[in-house]
Nucleic acid binder design. Structure first.
Lengths: 229, 229
DNA sequence: CACGCCCGTCAAGACCGCGTCAGGACGGTC
DNA sequence: GACCGTCCTGACGCGGTCTTGACGGGCGTG
């Protein structure tokens, strides 16, 4: 039900954490390096990420920033460093909470619940900004950076909403069709092409070379808010 | 720009907090009792609430729960109690973060930023003003800017109230029907058209070109207090 | 080099949702 | 019992939106 990603290189601690978390009903995936953490967090969907800052391969702050470039998944940081400056750096890098070791398991669990609770409506009413437009999920409309409203039809908005809510993850074409048109349309890939083209024409600076609405040939589509293309 | 509510009975600490926070650009309102805190948090809009659990008049957990009944404003708890159980209780009651005294000011500021980052637009009470009319949610009436009361039928008011309370967010037609007419009417979209037309005739300067009561075709309706249209 | 696959493009007709209007039913008040 | 305000209902027209099919291009494969 609830998917957790636990990033921690201390195998002893990983085992203890995973055991407890699973006993509380969480579905736990583990990673021992920052590279694995970034790869998992940006390609799979998790409800919360528990991240130890003291990783062997790379700086924890970099991991936070890299994940934040494409994902807004809640991140709860674990760290042995109690210094205020470390907390400030981690939180401002995009972390949602910061616990210093040693910590109590019940407190961690409560903070996980709080993080997940906040994230629930988080992507439901917030806005997602890119360099060229702003997606307002609450008002269900798209604006240019200067506030002008870009008009989308209901179907166009439906596709965009699904892609944006996927938070950077790849959305299979069949999923898109099911969510926007309904279960009976899962094979009408024509629709995807028509409406993706219309969305790009309205949103992309250069519709012929998409930067935000990306195609994964044979797999589906993906929304990249960084505009890296 | 950023409105803070600081709830703390230690006048010494309040002064220090308010001074620092204001120097960082926050607009700070203070409350010394739980009763004041609940009243303010439920009647005015704040971006974040900083709440000391050790209040003279009532239990801090009650304050959290009471605020949470009507508001989803982020709550950052301050407390002298370091016990894990206290943290768990506060977080599960609806708090978003928990700091133990003594705490570093920079850490508090970072946690405030993190809490606010998650915040979305919230509900409100009181009055909502536009250039052409004033919606008084308390008195359940609409006035023109010069104070004259614009008469609405109960159903008309019901629709307007739901839209205004949504605070600019899009309200699906089914939600509107459910809230105003009841669960059984969720498909009677005819009603929406008839009553929306009547509301516009009474409130809009030019009912044919709505500026405040906007249609999102295929999705629902939305109230825009700015009158941008 | 030819072929198939997948994706992007385009235009035209069918279709649907919204706004509008007016008539009738219902339930209060005097 | 008559009057008045409010609510429900159905029909109509219009504009925008969805659907559909055909065509073209890039790319890898046989």
């Amino acid at each position: 039900m609830t998917d957790l990603l636990v990033v921690e290189d201390d195998t002893q601690l990983v085992k203890a954490l995973a055991l407890t978390l699973r006993s509380r009903g969480y579905d736990v995936t583990t990673a021992g390096t920052g590279a694995d953490a970034v790869r998992l967090a940006t390609t799979r969907r998790f409800d919360v990420v528990v991240l130890d800052l003291g990783l062997p391969d790379r700086d924890g702050l970099e991991v936070i920033e890299e994940v934040r470039r494409t994902s807004s998944v809640p991140i709860v940081v674990l760290s042995a460093r109690r210094d205020q400056r470390d907390k400030v750096l981690a939180l401002d890098a995009g972390a949602d909470d910061y616990l210093t070791k040693p910590f109590g398991m019940e407190e961690l669990l409560a903070r996980l619940r709080a993080a997940q609770r906040r994230a629930g409506p988080g992507l439901q009413t917030g806005t997602v900004e890119t360099a060229d437009f702003v997606v307002d999920l609450g008002r269900k409309q798209v604006r240019s950076p200067d506030g002008e409203v870009l008009h989308l039809t209901p179907t166009e908005w439906g596709m965009l909403e699904v892609l944006v809510r996927a938070d950077g993850l790849l959305v299979p074409g069949a999923d898109l069709l099911r969510d926007v048109w309904g279960p009976a349309y899962a094979t009408q890939t024509n629709y995807l092409r028509v409406y993706m083209a219309q969305l790009r024409r309205k949103l992309e600076p250069d519709p012929a070379a998409p930067r935000y609405l990306l195609t994964a040939p044979g797999l589906g589509y993906r929304f990249d808010r960084t505009g890296a293309g």
